[in-house]
């Protein structure tokens, strides 16, 4: 039996359709849950995804208003039960603003997603790598591979904290699960798109089951979504698939994130 994973639609979210499709692609049963549905809709799920968008118009700060929705309390229960939670882009902002990550003290907001160092909304493809020391199931799924490409699309994606040394401590603890690199896995050129501290692209809670990820894996779930010109093995794969619908409908680099979600969800569905 495929586990059910909730995809939480907060008002202003705009990636729910492709996120539902990405969940289905890894054998999950995605269930669209709306912000004002009964919290029990979340309680029965084996995991949850918070898709990208502009919840509540990014009023105050991105994710800040949505973090006060009553249904977020149910997310805290899910997180405490060790079920996987994936927040993508605005979903990551909601996780940060509700203290679900880094969750050294669950519920306390210790990290922010600040405006990009080069201000303004930017959409582009980047590469990310996993911290090999991270215990998070999301990071473990990726660490066997080289860097993988994914698009970012945000104006507020720079992980930062006002607490001295916190980001370094999180890195030491393996909670900075994903970081930006170039296609070769190095820190060369403009590989960090937003000036994020310690090149952080994804942050997890101490148990590693809650991931706040700024890049969009659902936009890289099929090979056809990968741009032709991209350097590295995924670009080569894309170019080699010219004229081959069957290959283009095969998996893309971001699917590994959803596969990790599915594996973790299965452990909790039993």
């Amino acid at each position: 039996m495929n586990p059910t994973v909730a995809v939480l639609r907060l008002p202003g979210v705009n990636c729910e359709t492709e996120t539902l499709a990405a969940c289905a692609a890894v054998g999950l049963r995605p269930l669209l849950v709306q912000w004002n549905d009964a919290p029990t809709a979340l309680a029965g799920a084996a995991g949850c995804v918070l898709p990208g968008g502009f919840s509540y118009q990014d009023r105050i700060r991105a994710g800040a208003v949505a973090a006060k929705e009553p249904i977020i309390a149910a997310l805290h229960s899910l997180a405490a039960a060790g079920k996987p939670i994936l927040g993508i882009c605005n979903g990551a902002q909601v996780l940060v603003e509700s203290g679900l990550v880094p969750a050294l003290e669950p519920g306390r907001v210790q990290v922010a997603l600040a405006p990009n160092a080069d201000p303004g909304y930017e959409c582009r493809w980047v590469h990310l790598a996993a911290d090999p020391t991270s215990a998070s199931p999301f990071a473990r799924a990726l660490s066997a591979q080289g860097p993988i490409p994914m698009p970012i699309a945000h104006a507020e994606g720079r992980f930062t904290s006002r607490e001295d040394g916190l980001m370094e401590a999180l890195q030491h603890a393996g909670q900075l699960a994903f970081h930006y690199v170039d296609a070769a896995g190095e820190a060369n050129g403009d590989y960090n798109p937003n000036g994020s501290a310690l090149d952080t692209a994804g942050l997890v809670n101490p148990a590693g089951n809650v991931l706040a990820l700024m890049p969009h894996p659902e936009r890289a779930t099929w090979l056809r979504q990968v741009p032709f010109w991209l350097p590295g093995p995924w670009g080569e794969r894309r170019r080699a698939a010219q004229g081959r619908l069957d290959l283009l409908d095969g998996p893309g680099p971001g699917r590994v994130i959803f596969a990790a979600l599915a594996r973790a969800a299965r452990e909790h569905a039993a």
Partner: peptide, 8 residues
Amino acid sequence: HYDTEVQG
């Protein structure tokens, strides 16, 4: 500055 990727 434009989202070219949304909807996938």
